[in-house]
Nucleic acid binder design. Structure first.
Lengths: 212, 212, 212, 212
DNA sequence: CATGAATGAGCATTCATTCAT
DNA sequence: TATGAATGAATGCTCATTCAT
């Protein structure tokens, strides 16, 4: 009976996992509900016992993971680390997600952009919250004197997110030959991005710039 | 006769412009070919005199603009400016594209990711070329002593592209309330990103970093 | 449950029967899939659960009946009858098919010729096999002394098939006024054709011909 | 000017010739009007200066040749030859048509059956007339004592037409391997069919048949 | 007469969703 | 709950035909 319940509870999760796999491989629109069903070893109709419609699956994928990510981000934000360490932890978090679950990352970064309606209505608030938490960390760093104060924390957050996403995107699309998309290279790239980004963000970095 | 030719040349362009508008508003998959036709004031069938199929329209949008962008990038790269000025010109170029044609930007950054097959097969090489040109500028800056030498130019290029794209994305998705998506804000954000990025990239920036 | 299975089995058959009716009435190309669906009292999409596409329906009509026909022909061929009786049974078989299912006959003889690609690739082998079985019966008759030996059995088979098809065609097209396309007339025509054909085929018939 | 008129007069003929070629290769429905135009080196619109619509082209092909055929048939019918010679001339005529213009033959025998509406409304009368002329020759042979009198001339005509068509069809479809569709084989088959058919038709042939 | 770009009605096919079992 | 056969609305694309030049 515990078995049965576990199986039942699993079913929603199994569908979700299958969806991540198939969405990542074929894209949201090109994915047929029946393909998800097959990948989850479930009947087509069963999907609709757990999700209202196809888009709701994508929403759930995003929702589940994004909430987990936000929770982690909040924990980082409120931890006792230095601001710079926090930023580095955030980078590791966002890219670590990739390394562990490349399919999920592709779904979140690529597929999510497919339904602009959905993106704007549902994902945007969560995404905004993610950026705000990043911005909070930056702002705190400005207050404690770690980071330069002449930059809008929100712009910094967007740059951070965008830079990481850009690295992730090129990595996911397949590395530029002759490189290969190995976790090693991703970590190398991440560490260089970190060096670039933090050097620009540190207090004192603004002094070198006289122009513009 | 000049009229006639102009009209003919216009028709393809009119369809392209209409497609950019509709793709931006509704997304690639949600856009019906008949909608593009209506927006371009042509018959449905006329579309197929100029484009092989719906996807080919998206390809053309990307292709036309990307090639123009690459040409500009090459001119910047081979100009007599300093390396730092070149990087700034690149930023202006990529974001300026947005300011002028917000719909186009949304199509290129958002819709293009919808057909992963297409993205990987067609867009990736052009995109890669774009990144390579950026990397060349960075590498030149490293050689002439303007930029720190401990960073892989390609990683820097991806960070630059990603950061700009992130800023563009959040801008295109609608600014974070109560801000509004004004060109002014975009330019402000761009200037701050520039300050952040160049400060991290300048020769000497690596000295502040002792860790990792 | 027996009910359910019967219904399921029926559905494919129902579509096939409906297709025969509509193809016969309007021709293959002029027939819309939705018309077949309506005639079979199924939804349009249901058709595609049983057939890959419109042409596959035509193939199935041909295939199902042709295989049945070939089986009957083989039984006739290997029976204990005299060669002449066998030929007469073949004639009855081919024309009897018509009498019972005029629509089917029209589909097989007329519509099948519409997709030359299909005809050549799919139907030709089955058709050839049909002719070969006929030729075998003729050849056997030549060996047992019933039929004249100076004719190529294959040519005889083609003549037999063609003659029957010609009679069927004119019958199916509507009899020549003021006659009407009655089974009676078909049977009369068949019996006369039989008399004509067998008289020409019998051993000894070649003696009367001195010319050419 | 004579040149010009010749060219102009040619244009209709050129379209017709092109249509025969393309119809024979791809079938009536699968042939695009633009393909005929291209094959005739004419603009698409030009076709409609000479023919009301696509079907009218097929009608014209049929009409032109059929009328010529009927004229020849009438000449044979009213000639001074013996009845048996007349039948042989008819066979040669129908099959000779094939040998000389295989494309045309395929159009007439195969494609014409595609539009059953058309076939019934337009071609049937001409076809009937063709059969009637054949039947007249047979009837005349019965009266002059050449042919057996127990067969309906119309049925004989249909058998004759059908047999020839069957031979033509199998020949056009490609001979049964390893034979090849050579004119030689067609003539051989024709001569055998002639021997078979005339032996069955000759006065006296009915005597051998006691049954039915 | 000739052209061929433009038209738009028409149709096969797909696939998310439902529902009887 | 689970199934998967059935549904039918939705749409990309074709191509015969027209007509301004």
């Amino acid at each position: 009976m515990a078995e049965a319940r576990a199986t039942e509870g699993d079913k929603r999760e199994r569908i979700l996992q299958a969806a991540i796999r198939v969405f990542a491989k074929k894209g949201f629109y090109a994915t047929k509900v029946s393909e998800i069903a097959k990948a989850a070893s479930v009947a087509d109709g069963t999907i609709y016992l757990y999700f209202q419609n196809k888009e709701a699956i994508l929403v759930s994928v995003f929702d589940d993971r994004m909430k987990a990510l936000l929770a982690l981000l909040e924990r980082i934000s409120s931890s006792q680390r230095t601001s710079e360490e926090k930023v580095q932890r955030i980078m590791e978090l966002q890219l670590g997600l990739l390394e562990e679950e490349r399919d999920l990352a592709e779904v979140v970064t690529v597929n999510l952009r497919q339904s602009s309606t959905f993106l704007k209505q549902y994902a945007a608030p969560l995404f905004r919250r993610y950026l705000e938490l990043m911005a909070d960390v930056v702002a705190a760093g400005q207050r404690d004197g770690s980071f330069r104060k002449d930059l809008n924390p929100r712009v910094v957050a967007r740059s951070l997110f965008g830079g990481l996403d850009g690295i992730a995107l090129t990595w996911a699309l397949g590395a530029e030959p002759p490189e290969e998309p190995s976790p090693v290279l991703l970590r190398k790239a991440a560490s260089q991005f970190s060096a670039l980004f933090l050097a620009g963000l540190r207090a004192g970095a603004e002094l070198g710039a006289e122009a513009k």
